[in-house]
Design a protein around this nucleic acid. Structure first.
Length: 220
DNA sequence: GACCAGGCACATC
DNA sequence: GATGTGCATGGT
């Protein structure tokens, strides 16, 4: 068993199932994935509620909405002009390449779907993987700032590892299981929020027994 | 007021 | 390939 398997067990013991991704439909999950870029989820929820109240959480209705109108509604999520464009970019891509159908888009293999999403301006590796895992329910490991911090501070990977290095490491240590990847990423975010922010609080962290003897890598 | 939050694109060297 | 910068709101 690898350290990652152990970490998963510890986290699941401590926190239980996280029920990710919060959202009623694949499309809502995609919107959330774009809105949460470098942004607190609370702020994203406000924006999603604004869209919900305007009845814009569906492809057909959001398509008819101008980028300017969209931007005002998602203001609370921050970077709202950029994100309005990014949502628009996604819709445009879906219409042009997949007849506006998520089903057709999700009909790709994991790797193809990931590449397709990465070709959209405004969708980078984390957003693409979040969509693949949580909207399409296909097995890909999502890396985020917390994941990098947790892995680096435990000495599981070099501090200079890039996104794809972290992803390859995780996937090489774990069975390729969608449900496992789903739960694990959510648990990492949970432990990250509580204990692995820029100023770490390792005292009561469920992973404290897995810290290297030299102590946490506080310089990350 | 400073710092942070479930990133990404683009410019420049 | 590495490094720096703009994007922006709301909570602590």
């Amino acid at each position: 068993m690898s350290e990652l398997n152990d970490a998963y067990e510890q986290l699941f013991q401590a926190y239980g199932p996280q029920h990710w991704w919060p959202g009623d439909s694949p499309f809502e999950i995609i919107i959330g994935a774009i809105l949460t870029q470098n942004t607190n989820w609370k702020n994203v929820e406000r924006a999603l509620n604004q869209l919900r109240e305007a009845d814009l959480l569906s492809l057909s209705s959001l398509r008819k909405t101008s980028v300017e109108e969209l931007a005002e509604l998602i203001r609370s999520a921050g970077y709202y002009r950029q994100k309005a464009k990014r949502l628009h970019n996604f819709l445009h891509f879906l219409d042009e390449c997949y007849e506006g159908s998520l089903e057709l888009l999700f009909d790709n293999s994991v790797d193809e779907l990931r590449m397709e999403l990465l070709s959209i301006n405004g969708i980078g590796p984390e957003t693409a993987d979040s969509i693949v895992l949580y909207a399409a329910n296909m097995p890909t490991f999502v890396i985020d700032a917390y994941t990098a911090r947790v892995f680096v501070r435990h000495g599981w990977i070099d501090a200079d590892a890039r996104y794809d290095d972290l992803k390859q490491y995780a996937e090489s240590q774990l069975p390729r299981d969608m449900q496992l990847f789903n739960e694990f990423h959510a648990l990492i975010v949970q432990v990250g929020k509580k204990h692995c922010r820029k100023s770490p609080d390792c005292e009561n962290c469920p992973l404290s027994s897995m810290l290297p003897s030299a102590g946490p890598y506080l310089d990350f």
